[in-house]
Simulated assay, not measured.
Amino acid sequence: MPSLLFDPLPIFVIPVKGHDSGLPVRRIFCVGRNYAAHAAEMGGEVDREAPWYFTKSVAHAVLSGAEVPYPSGTENYHHEMELAFAIGLEVSNADEAEAAGAIFAFGCALDMTRRDRQQDGKDNRRPWSLGKDVENSAVFARMTPVEDFGALGNQRISLEVDGKIRQDASLAEMVWSPIELVMHLSRFYTLHPGDVVMTGTPAGVGPVSAGQTVTGFIDGLDPISLSLTK
């Protein structure tokens, strides 16, 4: 193997409750329009035939509590509070039981979005990368293993900006459950330990400004926060 011209990026690791070792993140998949009310507020509809996805670079991930600069190239930077889950077993073309067994842990996540750049992509039928795959835009809190979290149901998912509520919904509002997402996504990719799926955001997304702090909550999971500096 040849020597490296540059130092490789460090592995991004998410802490896991009850474990001394963390979860090394391999890939980040994001689910689009997984809450009907959010799809409506964005002027769209849920595709109930099948879920669909975009990706974020692991290089753009940060941990909860980070203080990051307001990104360049946008005047409309939005918060999106999400449930994330991590894959713990290799799985391909999973059936329901295999999909359930492949989910290792759940956690709070933020999908921060250059909404104006995303809209550019929509308007011009171009990819969303400038809107979604943004430096410091994939934010993860410490994850909780499935066996410690229990069954998904109507747990509250909410988000505040500087202490004022912006998003307030239930995980029961998700169109596609994590198990269904693994079953579908594993038809197109062999999923591996360390793959992380962000399951979409409920209604109430909106802009944040430099100097503000975003805080998100899901019942039974560690909260998440992100501060934007000037």
Rank of each mutant, 00 (worst) to 15 (best):
Pro2Asn: 12
Pro2Trp: 06
Ser3Cys: 08
Ser3Gly: 12
Asp7Asn: 10
Pro8Ile: 11
Pro8Gln: 11
Leu9Gly: 14
Leu9Val: 13
Pro10Asp: 09
Ile11Phe: 05
Pro15Glu: 07
Pro15Cys: 06
Gly22Arg: 05
Leu23Trp: 04
Pro24Cys: 13
Pro24Leu: 12
Val25Gln: 04
Arg27Cys: 07
Phe29Leu: 07
Phe29Gly: 04
Cys30Met: 08
Gly32Pro: 07
Gly32Ser: 12
Tyr35Glu: 07
Glu41Gly: 04
Met42Gly: 01
Glu45Cys: 05
Arg48Lys: 13
Trp52His: 14
Tyr53Gly: 01
Tyr53Arg: 04
Ser57Tyr: 03
Val58Ile: 08
Ala59His: 11
His60Gln: 05
Ala61Leu: 04
Val62Arg: 14
Val62Asp: 02
Leu63Tyr: 06
Leu63Gln: 11
Glu67Phe: 03
Pro69Gln: 08
Ser72Asn: 09
Gly73Asp: 04
Glu75Thr: 13
Asn76Ser: 10
Tyr77Glu: 02
His78Cys: 03
His79Ser: 11
Glu80Ala: 09
Met81Asp: 04
Glu82Ser: 11
Ala86Val: 11
Ile87Glu: 05
Leu89Ser: 10
Glu90Phe: 03
Glu90Leu: 00
Val91Phe: 05
Val91Cys: 08
Asn93Lys: 13
Ala94Ile: 11
Ala97Arg: 15
Ala100Asp: 14
Gly101Asn: 14
Ile103Asp: 12
Phe104Gly: 00
Phe106Ile: 11
Gly107His: 05
Cys108Pro: 02
Cys108Tyr: 09
Cys108His: 08
Ala109His: 12
Asp111Lys: 02
Met112Trp: 00
Arg117Met: 10
Gln119Leu: 14
Asp120Phe: 08
Lys122Ser: 03
Lys122Phe: 08
Lys122His: 06
Leu130Tyr: 13
Lys132Arg: 08
Asp133Trp: 08
Val134Ile: 14
Val134Glu: 00
Ala141Leu: 09
Val146Gln: 14
Asp148Tyr: 12
Phe149Met: 09
Val161Ile: 15
Val161Lys: 07
Gly163Asn: 06
Gly163Gln: 04
Ile165Gly: 02
Arg166Glu: 13
Gln167Met: 08
Ala169Ser: 15
Ala172Gly: 14
Met174Ser: 05
Met174Trp: 07
Val175Cys: 09
Trp176Gln: 01
Ser177Lys: 12
Ser177Pro: 01
Ser177Trp: 03
Ser177Gln: 14
Ser177Asp: 05
Pro178Cys: 12
Ile179Leu: 09
Glu180Cys: 01
Val182Lys: 07
Met183Cys: 10
His184Arg: 09
His184Gly: 01
Phe188Thr: 11
Tyr189Gln: 12
His192Lys: 15
Val196Phe: 07
Val196Asp: 00
Met198Ile: 13
Gly200Lys: 01
Thr201Asn: 01
Gly204Trp: 04
Gly204Asn: 03
Val208Met: 08
Gln212Gly: 13
Thr215Ser: 14
Thr215Lys: 15
Thr215Cys: 15
Gly216Cys: 09
Gly220Tyr: 11
Ile224Glu: 00
Ser225Ile: 09
Leu226Phe: 06
Ser227Glu: 07
Leu228Asn: 10
Lys230Pro: 14
